[in-house]
Design a protein around this nucleic acid. Sequence first.
DNA 1: TTTAGGG
DNA 2: CCCTAAA
Length: 418
Amino acid sequence: MEGSFLPAPLNESNEVDHFLVEPKSDHELGNCLRVQDFSRDFGYEIQTNGDAEVDENSFRQNRGLQLGKPSSESKSQGSSRSDTDAFEISELSATMVMEAEFNNTPVERSLTRELFSGLRTRGGCATPFEGNICDTILDNNNIHKFNTNENYLENEKISDENVKGDIVASKLASCSRERRLRKPTRRYIEEFADSKSENNKGRRKPPTKDKYLKVTSTEESNHIRHKVQMLTPKDESHCGTSVPVQSRSQRRHPEKHVPVSGFLSEDEPSATECKNVYSSAKICKKYDRRKHQKMWTLTEVMRLVDGIAEYGTGRWTRIKRHLFASSPHRTPIDLRDKWRNLLKASCVNIQNSKGTECKQPHASRPLPKSLLQRVYELANIYPYPKERSPKPVREATPPMYLIESNSLSFNWGRKKYE
DNA sequence: TTTAGGG
DNA sequence: CCCTAAA
């Protein structure tokens, strides 16, 4: 049988042929051949060793003796099988059997070569497309022919013309329309979804929540805002295939790297740095802000406080436009959240300064007292949540550092924060 | 579209 | 930082 092989037209054919001619190791056999695939689905009897992998010697014998000669006896001797198992055959074993079958005649050999070259040109060895092709070929009115009886050879010759056309045509055309017999792998699903979402990205309206990360440049009061567009789980859910959307609980708690000490030393990332970060973030579409959280620098906090002092609370977009135009990673919601945290921190400090022991809740990131004082004053001026009372009521007694630091005047100079 | 509020 | 409802 080995003598009937035609020399491979291409060097790369050896990759496939070596499986067919000389199995080199048990490992390869174990990877590409399962006994069940053979004996169940094609009626070939292949002896097995204990762990149900193909014994090499017996495989050689059986291949020489019995391949291409399916018999009902051997089938009956085979292990118990169910018909549904026929669709779980692995790609390589399927193609291997097919090549063994089709190598009976020169026409079939060339046909098989063609089929294999077609498969190879699709790239990777184990892509789902190959699986579809093999399944399709086997699933069409061809599979019965491998599986039956003495009429095998006659049927083979009779239907040879049709089969030849069917295989060549169906191997390329029908992989998309045939019913999917094997459950696609998770990775395939994700990659497919990614590519598809990439195709749809230009057509779909980006979600509003990430608009400040979009990379389009819009002019606005002489500022250029750099935005990065990201895909969201919502986007992926529209992709047609059943893409497993990462649940919120999974995204909820990414491992965040807690800074060891204080605010970041470098206050503002340069504009180019931001651009690089977020253009790369655009490239990798699953950019998760939670995994790349940006610590608030002291200057950012000061700027936020300045903005609130100027525009008041609840004008987050305005503050963002005017004071955070150069930091695209801060959305108005971020500003608001930060302000909420600042309020909390100032309240905590107030409570602590009332008590005997003044222990810093966030010792790693101590806020300057002057800053907390300003937050406190702003909280009184612009109570949050909104409801801007015309006359701020001061119900809480100011903490000690507020009392001794006298002036509640509004001319907070930046030098106060040093 | 922006903000508030809760998680 | 995210999500959602409401303005």
